[in-house]
């Protein structure tokens, strides 16, 4: 507990390895009660669980939650019976997959025959745990487009595809893309053709142009700087798909203010819009990650102007390509070499 982004980014800490299912609600109530009683009330920005955990420390927080939990258990009221868990679970059953061979002759043939399709499969299709099925990630990041935007016609098309090819289920991801969770491998090419016809087959999932951006100053009253036009410029700068694959997995997250809706703290490259005396500036962080090695990015140095920031991103990418070993990902290179090579290339020439 105690994790969160916003103006005070913190990585959550573990206070209980495992809580029995039946006690889950009581345990959460214990957490909420400790927070309610001891959380900060003097400053609304500090009225957060993460602030309490940070101030008293995770050991003390754990001790208090456990003590409260013991009291709540005595009352025994918030017990979650296993039959209730089973009743709820019934609503989340996987769909009835067909029994299929894992290998699809149709797919193998199409991959060989259609190079664009093969590229799309490589970046946008993920493995499914059920044989013969695949997961399709629909990129809402066309080159130069607004990250996460989708027209009503595209929505209609996607809904139709989901209905016909993916058990009528469509998911929206926090990375501002869509996911068809259960597509038969033999249907992948048909799905691809339909997506392509609606401008939804950009093959860039996980690549540098698959950025997260908040609405920014163009749409948001809280923002200090624009996010969307910057994301569009970066997308255009790195438009070449061969180059994107050469760069590999790289997540750029942009927020137009410290509230961090674009999750910039956990972008491999994070961009934060700030206002300095009425002028938009962009602060850049490196090394953030929202994976199993969660990290808050490090500020690389003084902020860049609107005119400088896309070049700065390019310099960071070029520096990475220069120091990476054995095709390691940007984030792995950063974890190995640290911030210094990037600082040097960004600021010594200025």
């Amino acid at each position: 507990m105690g994790g969160g982004l916003g103006r005070t980014p913190m990585i959550g800490k573990k206070i209980a390895g495992f809580v029995p299912k039946e006690d889950l609600l009581a345990y959460l109530e214990a957490v909420m009660r400790v927070y309610n009683m001891y959380g900060r009330r003097d400053n609304i920005y500090k009225a957060r669980i993460k602030i309490l955990v940070h101030e008293i420390g995770v050991e003390e927080m754990t001790r208090q939650v456990e003590a409260e939990f013991a009291e709540l258990r005595k009352a025994g009221a918030l017990h979650l019976p296993l039959e209730e868990v089973a009743r709820i679970e019934a609503y989340f059953q996987p769909p009835s997959h067909e029994n299929l061979p894992d290998d699809s002759a149709e797919l193998n043939k199409a991959v060989l025959a259609d190079r664009d399709f093969a590229n799309w499969v490589k970046s946008n299709v993920a493995q499914h745990k059920v044989p013969g099925y695949a997961i399709v990630n629909i990129s809402l990041k066309p080159i130069g487009g607004v990250p996460g935007d989708c027209t009503s016609d595209q929505m209609d098309a996607v809904a139709g595809i989901a209905e016909k090819y993916s058990f009528d289920e469509l998911r929206v991801t926090h990375e501002q893309n869509l996911t068809l969770a259960h597509v038969r491998k033999k249907d992948l090419h048909a799905v691809y053709d339909l997506l392509k016809a609606h401008g939804l087959a950009t093959p860039n999932i996980g690549l540098i142009t698959d950025q997260i951006a908040c609405p920014g100053l163009d749409y948001c009253a809280l923002a200090n700087a624009r996010s969307i036009p910057l994301a569009q410029q970066i997308s255009e700068r790195f438009a070449d798909i061969e180059r994107q694959h050469e760069i590999g997995e790289l997540k750029i997250n942009t927020s137009g203010c410290i509230n961090a809706c674009g999750h910039h703290h956990v972008g491999h490259i994070g961009i934060l819009g700030v206002d300095k005396k009425g002028v938009e500036y962009y602060q850049v962080t490196l090394g953030g990650a929202a994976d199993e090695k969660t990290a808050i990015g490090d500020i690389v140095g003084r902020a860049f102007t609107e005119d400088e920031v896309v070049d700065a991103i390019e310099t960071i990418v070029t520096t990475y390509i220069g120091v990476r070993q054995n095709g390691e990902r940007f984030i792995d290179t950063y974890r190995r070499v640290g911030i210094d090579p990037f600082k040097e290339s960004l600021y010594e020439t200025h």
Partner: peptide, 16 residues
């Protein structure tokens, strides 16, 4: 209104 500590206090008075 946004300081809800007294909710917890009330339950503790009654339950504990």
């Amino acid at each position: 209104y946004r300081n809800g500590r007294a909710y917890s206090y009330a339950r503790i008075l009654r339950e504990r």
